[in-house]
């Protein structure tokens, strides 16, 4: 990717994002009442994040084992409500342990 492509992609991404926010904010009046559309939009954040995380997290580190275990520990930490930063730290420590410390001793 060269600099020209970067700016072209950036303009598409930033432009679409801005229009999605600005156009309804400026033009639309009235409340969205269609339950189907509301439900669809309510599910989007979770489904996007889930699809982006699995299986990509398996390939995001030096070994697949650390990626898989990071997902497992992150899910467990989330169930115990560790919060955003806490869960991220647990996942990072898992990878640090598996890829960083483990090979040093074994």
């Amino acid at each position: 990717m060269n600099l020209r492509e970067y700016f072209a992609f950036l303009m598409v991404m930033a432009g679409v994002t801005f229009l999605l926010r600005a156009v309804p904010f400026v033009l639309l009046k009235g409340k969205l009442s269609n339950p189907f559309v509301k439900s669809f939009l309510a599910y989007i954040p979770c489904t996007v994040l889930a699809a982006m995380t699995v299986p990509a997290i398996f390939y995001s580190t030096d070994s697949m084992l650390s990626g898989v275990l990071a997902l497992v520990t992150a899910v467990v930490a989330s169930l115990f409500r560790f919060g955003l930063v806490g869960v991220a730290l647990v996942a990072c420590c898992t990878v640090l342990f598996i890829d960083g410390l483990w090979p040093m001793f074994f």
Partner: peptide, 24 residues
């Protein structure tokens, strides 16, 4: 690199932290 390798999962960790509570 051994630190950035570990930090690389931080974003995914946060995604998990956003998705899991409503699933529960």
């Amino acid at each position: 690199s051994w630190i950035t390798n570990a930090l690389g999962v931080a974003l995914y960790g946060m995604f998990v932290a956003i998705v899991v509570p409503p699933c529960k």
